[in-house]
Design a protein around this nucleic acid. Structure first.
Lengths: 193, 193
DNA sequence: TTGCATAGTTACAGACCGGTAACACCCTAG
DNA sequence: CTAGGGTGTTACCGGTCTGTAACTATGCAA
């Protein structure tokens, strides 16, 4: 009946979680703070007691997304401790699963598309986050003993990014269906050198 | 001094051209019809005499983008008549040039990120356009005598799409710098089979 | 019980949004 | 010269947006 998020937690957490969900589904400019607070079972005043503006709320949501992404990487290490190659394949599977999860692309990329002001506070966060993810993937490839780790990581990264926007434009039946095949082929090809 | 677009042409054309430019730079929801008409040197009433709603204007802008993209493909055929492989390489160069043109990604993809309503009239146009471009690239690869043309075309397509969003998130110094290298490497690899 | 921080409520400000009505203007075709 | 279509101008409608003020209710801790 309730939204699940509303349950019993502190208002700040409910607002953050609800905002993340609504920004993801409807875009940032497509959601007003009134709608967020109502869905979070609270009100606008409370939101502005915890976040000094909508922009700050946006930034906080993006940071929360990054934290979730970080947890994902740690899960790879837990599942395949020390086996970097297995972790790389796990990343491919996880990425493919995300493609079929819902028709929305990457929250960071979508935010970058919407927030066009070059000095918007969110842009800095987005850039940091994307660079951190890139670094993680490069490190993983290198530690897996693959030559030209940067090139492989960047290629995989662009493929995944492209697949996410492809899902958003033409749906899950488009070029993104071949993502796993492409990624695995690339990894095999780089390892063979 | 003036915007260039304003010059002397029929109001409808000025509105369309100005809207395309502003949507591209500031996003769709980031631009109001008042701002468009003012920049186009006209007024809101005239806009609504030519377009029945902002949504229709959006759709018309996307179609205009598609027309420009179509002209690009024809230019390849004119420059390298019959030489499909040369046209494919020309596509790679053109794509790379677009990456460094400005920090904004693909208008279609950005529109898809913003217009989240599943039955928004623009979504249909976006899907058609993206599918048309995919078909063109597949045909080009096949006519260039490459085996697994679909897989190569889809891979190149995802790489390019990913590179465009990468430029938008981390800038031109990110993974997208390797785009040409990746694309050329893929083409060579597919041709060798 | 008293005191205080947190949260909810109502109302509002000021700006902007998409869209329309009514009317004045010009340019060109007949 | 005149009629009419395309255009410009002004004012407006109802709605929504972010953000704030002032006040009330709640729950917990000393």
């Amino acid at each position: 009946m309730t939204d699940g998020v509303v349950e019993r937690s502190r208002p700040r957490d409910r607002i953050l979680e609800t905002a993340r969900d609504m920004f993801h589904k409807h875009g940032i400019k497509g959601v007003g703070v009134d709608a967020i607070t109502e869905a979070a079972g609270t009100n606008k005043m409370t939101l502005y007691r915890h976040f000094e503006s909508k922009d700050e709320l946006i930034v906080e949501c993006l940071r929360a997304n990054a934290a979730k992404a970080g947890a994902m990487w740690e899960a790879f290490e837990v599942e395949f401790p020390g086996d970097k190659l297995a972790q790389l394949h796990a990343w491919v599977r996880k990425a493919a699963a995300m493609l079929n999860a819902d028709g929305r692309g990457c929250d960071m990329a979508n935010a970058a598309a919407e927030l066009t002001e070059p000095d918007h506070p969110a842009r800095l966060v987005i850039k940091e986050l994307k660079e951190a993810q890139r670094h993680r993937l490069v490190t993983l490839c290198r530690d897996a003993g693959i030559g030209q780790a940067e090139l492989l990581a960047d290629t995989l990264s662009l493929l995944f990014e492209g697949a996410r926007v492809s899902v958003q434009t033409v749906g899950t039946e488009g070029p993104s269906t071949q993502f796993v095949r492409m990624a695995e082929g690339l990894i095999a090809s780089f390892r063979a050198r």
